[in-house]
Simulated scan of single mutants.
Amino acid sequence: MEFTDTWGGTYPAIVRLWEAAWAEFVPLLRFDVEIRKIVCTTTAIQSINARIRKAVRARGHCPTDQAALKCVYLAVMSLDPTGTGRRRWTMRWKAALQAFDITFDGRLTATRR
């Protein structure tokens, strides 16, 4: 394998890790390039997850699934309360949103109708 030949002598632990994780990595390659860019952009995703965790922790427990969804929805909507950032966000993520919509058979746009 070319990767092993190039980096095996210098970084043997990395090569072992790469080979062990190959089965989990290959399914990612089936997605479009736009989706892979989003998946690899972890800083924004981690920021949103932190906001959601903070909101859920402050709320305590949620008695129903609907209450949990409302808590998550309000946490995400509070990221941009005026809605002005949404326009810029969708322009930057437009290709990725379209790829998600095609890949996941319209599940993104089904809720907006």
Rank of each mutant, 00 (worst) to 15 (best):
M77E: 07
N49P: 06
I45Y: 15
I52D: 04
R88I: 10
I52R: 02
G9E: 01
V56C: 08
N49C: 11
A50R: 06
T82Y: 04
M91E: 13
R112D: 13
R112W: 15
R112K: 12
A13I: 07
G106A: 00
T111Q: 14
A20Y: 13
I102P: 03
A68N: 12
A99N: 01
N49V: 12
L79P: 06
T103M: 00
A21W: 10
S47W: 11
F3R: 06
E2I: 11
I102T: 09
F3L: 15
W7H: 05
A75W: 03
Q66Y: 09
K70Y: 11
M77N: 07
T82E: 06
A44F: 10
A95N: 10
M77R: 03
F3H: 07
I102K: 04
E2Q: 10
V33M: 00
T90I: 09
I14W: 14
T64V: 02
L17S: 08
R86T: 10
M1Y: 14
A95R: 04
A58M: 06
D65L: 15
G106E: 02
R88N: 08
C62H: 12
R112A: 15
S47F: 14
G8T: 01
S78E: 10
N49I: 09
E34N: 03
A110C: 04
P63Y: 04
C71E: 09
T10K: 04
P81L: 01
L69K: 13
T82A: 02
T10E: 09
R51A: 15
T90D: 09
G8K: 02
P63V: 03
P63A: 06
G106S: 00
E19T: 06
T84I: 09
R53S: 12
L74K: 01
M1R: 12
R30T: 11
T109Y: 10
S47A: 14
V56W: 07
T10Q: 06
G85F: 03
S78Q: 07
I38F: 13
D80E: 04
V39K: 03
A58N: 11
T42K: 07
R92A: 10
T42P: 08
A44W: 09
R57F: 14
S47H: 14
S47K: 08
A20G: 12
D80W: 03
A75S: 05
I52Y: 00
M1Q: 13
T6F: 13
V72G: 05
W22C: 04
R16D: 13
Y73T: 13
L79S: 11
E19F: 05
E2C: 09
E19M: 01
L17W: 07
T10P: 07
S47P: 07
T64M: 01
P63G: 05
V26F: 02
L74N: 10
G8Y: 00
A110T: 05
T103Y: 00
V15K: 01
R107Y: 13
L69A: 15
V76H: 14
T43M: 10
Y73M: 03
D5A: 14
V76P: 11
M77Q: 08
K37F: 06
V76K: 09
D5H: 04
I102A: 05
C40H: 12
K37D: 15
N49A: 13
R87E: 14
I38A: 15
A99W: 00
L79C: 12
Y11M: 06
A110Y: 03
Y73S: 13
R51H: 15
A67M: 04
C62D: 14
A99L: 01
T103K: 00
A68H: 11
